[in-house]
Simulated scan of single mutants.
Amino acid sequence: MPAEVLDPSDLAETFRAQIRAEVAALPEPLTLAGFRVEGDGPTQTYAEYTRRGCEKVGIRFDQRVLPAEEVERAVHEAGSDPSVHGIFLYYPILGLAQDRWLREIVDPRKDVEGLHSFWSRCLYENRRYIDAERTKRAVLPCTPLAVLKLLEASGITDVGAVEPLAGLKACVFNRSEIVGQPLAAMMANDGAEVISFDVEGPLAYVPSRGNGSYEVRGTSVDRATALAEADVVVTGVPSRDFPLVRAEEIKPGATCINFSTLRNYDEDIVRTAGVFVPRIGPMTVTMALRNAVRLHHNRQG
């Protein structure tokens, strides 16, 4: 039986309906400021997706296209501007090392992408709230969060459980600071055993049962073994040299998700997978807008 191909647009619209209702109930309109450098390309496309997403839920999108050397100053100004409620940066801007610094100058109270180190600490320490009263929810990075929500929609998770991915094995191809690494940690926080691959080799993210944390260990597990055992396979390799994941490599019935801009799966994957998600873009933008509303609620107390 061929895999169910899950369209992220359908799930995104479900979340957008919830966001629209929350935004409409606010006493003031929300404004999201997006910063990118001049020129065409993927960042322009991503910013356009954000504009459309904002329009659909009633959030104002203020796109600011600047020379790279002016972005830092503009982000500082947006952080202190009470009329700006959320900040979105479209990378690359200055280059890998400098872009890491740009993430740190975003006010975490306005960081809709959830990439500031304040939010990273919450994630890696598995802190779901930022106040003792547990009334202010932490935000998570929008692309890994989109993957988790798509896993929920696939029916593979135990929604509502303390560890909704307990007992599952996952295989993730990507260990970037922005997506792959936080995704592996989030899945381990939710109970999954994760084998994470990148050019430096595999690592295992192993849940520590009962205390809501995980350990990262070296492992000798190879690609073939990890794929054959994985209930969930997530790929995000932005290279045409990546050997496509084929139907005969995966566990029958596995849920397979691709978040790369390139195709990481062979077309025959639907013969063996249970659920296949070929892209996640609409959900990434929607989770950023969800974060914007959550951050606003946190600021209002």
Rank of each mutant, 00 (worst) to 15 (best):
P2Q: 13
P2G: 13
L6P: 02
P8C: 05
T14Q: 15
R16W: 09
A17F: 06
A17P: 00
R20Q: 14
R20Y: 13
E22F: 01
V23S: 03
L26T: 01
P29S: 00
A33S: 12
R36D: 09
V37T: 15
G39S: 14
T43W: 10
T45I: 09
E48D: 08
Y49T: 08
T50H: 08
R51G: 07
R51N: 07
R52L: 15
V57F: 06
G58F: 04
G58D: 05
R60S: 09
D62L: 11
R64T: 15
L66A: 12
P67K: 02
P67M: 06
E70D: 12
V71T: 09
R73T: 14
A74I: 06
H76Q: 14
E77Y: 00
S80T: 09
P82E: 15
V84W: 03
G86V: 03
G86E: 03
P92S: 01
L96I: 13
D99Q: 02
R103V: 09
V106C: 10
D107Y: 00
D107Q: 04
R109E: 15
H116I: 05
S120E: 04
Y124F: 11
R127C: 13
I130K: 04
A132Y: 08
A132S: 12
R134D: 15
A138C: 08
V139N: 01
A146Y: 02
L151F: 09
L151R: 02
L151V: 10
S154G: 10
G155S: 13
G155L: 13
A161C: 06
P164Q: 08
L165G: 02
C171M: 07
C171Q: 07
S176N: 03
E177V: 05
V179H: 00
G180A: 09
P182N: 06
P182L: 05
L183F: 06
A185M: 05
M187Q: 06
D190H: 07
A192S: 12
A192P: 07
V194F: 04
S196P: 04
D198E: 13
Y205P: 00
V206S: 15
V206W: 10
G212D: 14
S213G: 14
Y214K: 01
E215P: 00
T219M: 05
S220G: 12
S220A: 14
A226C: 05
L227N: 01
E229R: 06
E229A: 12
A230R: 00
V232D: 08
V237E: 07
P238M: 09
R240E: 15
R240K: 12
D241Q: 03
V245N: 02
K251G: 04
G253T: 14
C256P: 04
N258Q: 08
R263H: 11
D266G: 13
D268A: 11
R271C: 12
R271D: 15
T272P: 00
G274T: 10
V275D: 14
V277Q: 03
P278V: 02
P282A: 11
M283P: 05
M283N: 04
T284A: 09
T286A: 08
M287K: 03
A288W: 04
A292N: 03
R294T: 15
L295E: 03
H296W: 10
